[in-house]
Design a protein around this nucleic acid. Structure first.
Length: 489
RNA sequence: CGGGACGUAGCGCAGUCCGGUAGCGCACCUGAAUGGGGUUCAGGGGGUCGCGGGUUCAAAUCCCGCCGUCCCGACCA
């Protein structure tokens, strides 16, 4: 990491910019173990707010939390053919414990389908025991070859929901319901617009019938898969004998879903909103929404301004105009650090709103506000300040989403498009390209080979083009689907 | 695992070619002044030079071996 005051710019080197923001905003740091990271308080604070918001949404849709163990018998992973193929290469395996070789090695969970459905099999006898709607917050381990802070690490934090249902349609409805929850969270909390849709067979979860996903566009025009929701069909139910007696008295296999989002979203947050001054945090996810920077010269001024700053914080946090969601305010009263230096520091950390409070402001019964996203400064009267602050925060939240949406649309290309032009785009600035596809996995593989771009989604109806593409971009054959192509993280 | 680069103070680096007292910037500590967009001055602390062996009067520097990191590739919800 450079110790220069200025960050690498996004235009200069997006990848270096990302690393610097994560490290210098103190979201995370490298660990002594290759590919692992420490999530520092600034980063974990964002994760806690993500957790709280999502957890509330899961509870509101009838789910409950539980916890399943880290260790999974290795044999479990082998019970679902496609699943083991997908995960065995990246599994971490424990072979010794208590100073002795284990009779059966234990896999550190890369995901928990196997252990969870083996337990559900114990718990379910009749259709009256269904549905089971459980979520867990946990860490998982996947032995990745190449890692990036937040985006791909050996260990990461996530939630994984696992449900069991009596019918396919009910499981499908659950899968779609959660996809909607994810979309709402990403838009309303992260201010990160996403496309939703279906993954192709080659991109789906190993062991699923089908996978739905949320895809967001980062500022380098690459796609980030930010959340997935899987309809597992009866694959795991068959593997683990998860059966129930139906109303008609027959033994039937249950229908499962699983769905997850991870700390990867924090990487998405950085790459969606960050600018050349550092992190930009959407207010709803910011552990601190408002930082008050007091300004003084003499000792008398210092006392007066500091007192006023702390009173200001009290007044703001006591305000109930947002109900239980009180304003989160910090006063930076450090001595020996000049105000300007504080401004840069808090901007780097992405605090949404700064209030500057000096003697002149106090004399005028006002303070100066500065929004992180636009860096616009406005003087605000101290009377009624809380309402004005909440208003600015709420505008910022909305503006961030709109700006990200505009950027995504400005960098999306729609059919008709030739494959030659497509290759130019993927060689250059990148984009989301909406185009026709004949549905042939071989074509998908060829495009990936030639351009590194993949089908991100077969988009849901609300994201499709007004006129469906008629022909496959590559072969000119009739199109089976409209798909979104992009390079991805 | 293949190709390339690099390991020297918390961070970023110079010094290595040509062996001879271990340095610079930032950060950190103390004091004073300063304080409305990255202050200044003065003083100070901090290093088994990745690890092991060899050559030499003498090794950060030369030789051999190992370990680790990063980039490119292979790999990857």
């Amino acid at each position: 990491m450079s110790t220069d005051k200025k960050l690498t710019t996004r235009a200069g080197d997006f990848s270096a910019w990302y690393n610097e923001v994560v490290l210098r905003a103190e979201l995370a740091d490298y660990s002594p173990v290759r590919g692992c990271m420490v999530i520092r308080p600034n980063g974990y604070g964002i994760w806690e707010r993500m957790q709280r918001a999502l957890d509330d949404m899961f509870k509101a849709t009838g789910h409950r939390n539980a916890y399943f163990p880290l260790f999974i018998p290795e044999s479990f992973l082998h019970k679902e053919a496609e699943h083991v193929e997908g995960f065995a290469p990246e599994a971490a395996v424990v072979t010794h414990g208590g100073g002795r070789k284990l009779e059966e090695p234990l896999v550190v969970r890369p995901t928990s389908e196997t252990i969870i459905y083996s337990m559900y099999a114990k718990w379910v006898q009749s259709y009256r025991d269904l549905p089971i709607l459980i979520n867990q917050w946990a860490n998982v381990v996947r032995w990745e070859m190449r890692t990036r802070l937040f985006l791909r690490t050996l260990e990461f934090l996530w939630q994984e929901g696992h449900t069991a249902h009596a019918t396919h349609d009910e499981a499908e409805a659950e899968t779609r319901l959660i996809l909607g929850v994810y979309r709402e969270f990403m838009e309303q909390w992260m201010a990160m617009p996403v496309l939703t849709g279906l993954k192709t067979q080659s991109e789906k979860f190993a062991g699923a019938l089908r996978t739905y996903a949320c895809e967001a566009m980062m500022q380098d025009n690459k796609a980030l898969q930010a959340g997935t929701s899987h309809n597992l069909g009866q694959n795991f139910a068959r593997a683990f004998e998860l059966k129930f007696q139906s109303e008609s008295g027959d033994q039937e296999y249950a229908w499962n879903t699983s769905w997850g989002v991870s700390t990867r979203m924090i990487g998405g947050l950085v790459m969606t909103h960050g600018d050349d001054n550092g992190l930009v945090t959407p207010p709803r996810l910011a552990p601190v929404e408002v930082v008050v920077v007091p300004i003084w010269k003499s000792d008398e001024e210092r006392t007066r301004v500091l007192d006023a700053a702390h009173q200001l914080r009290k007044d703001l946090t006591a305000w109930t105009g947002r109900g239980d969601d009180r304003l989160r305010v910090h006063v930076d009263g450090r001595e020996g650090v000049k105000p300007g230096a504080k401004y840069y520091e808090w901007e780097l950390q992405g605090i949404p709103l700064r209030l500057e409070l000096g003697p002149r402001d106090l004399d005028n019964g006002a303070c100066m506000s500065a929004r992180r996203d636009t860096r616009a400064k406005t003087s605000l009267p101290l009377t009624g300040l809380a309402g004005a602050v909440a208003g600015l925060l709420s505008s910022m939240q909305a503006d961030l989403l709109q700006a990200a949406r505009n950027r995504r649309e400005a960098n999306s290309v729609r059919d008709p498009i030739t494959y030659a032009r497509f290759r130019e785009i993927m060689d250059g600035e990148g984009a989301f390209v909406y185009a026709g596809w004949n549905g042939d996995p071989a074509i998908e593989a060829r495009v990936k080979e030639e351009t590194k771009a993949t089908v991100r989604l077969i988009p849901d109806p609300e994201f499709r083009s007004p006129e469906a593409p008629r022909t496959c971009m590559v072969t000119g054959e009739p199109a089976v689907h409209e798909v979104v192509w992009a390079k991805a993280y």
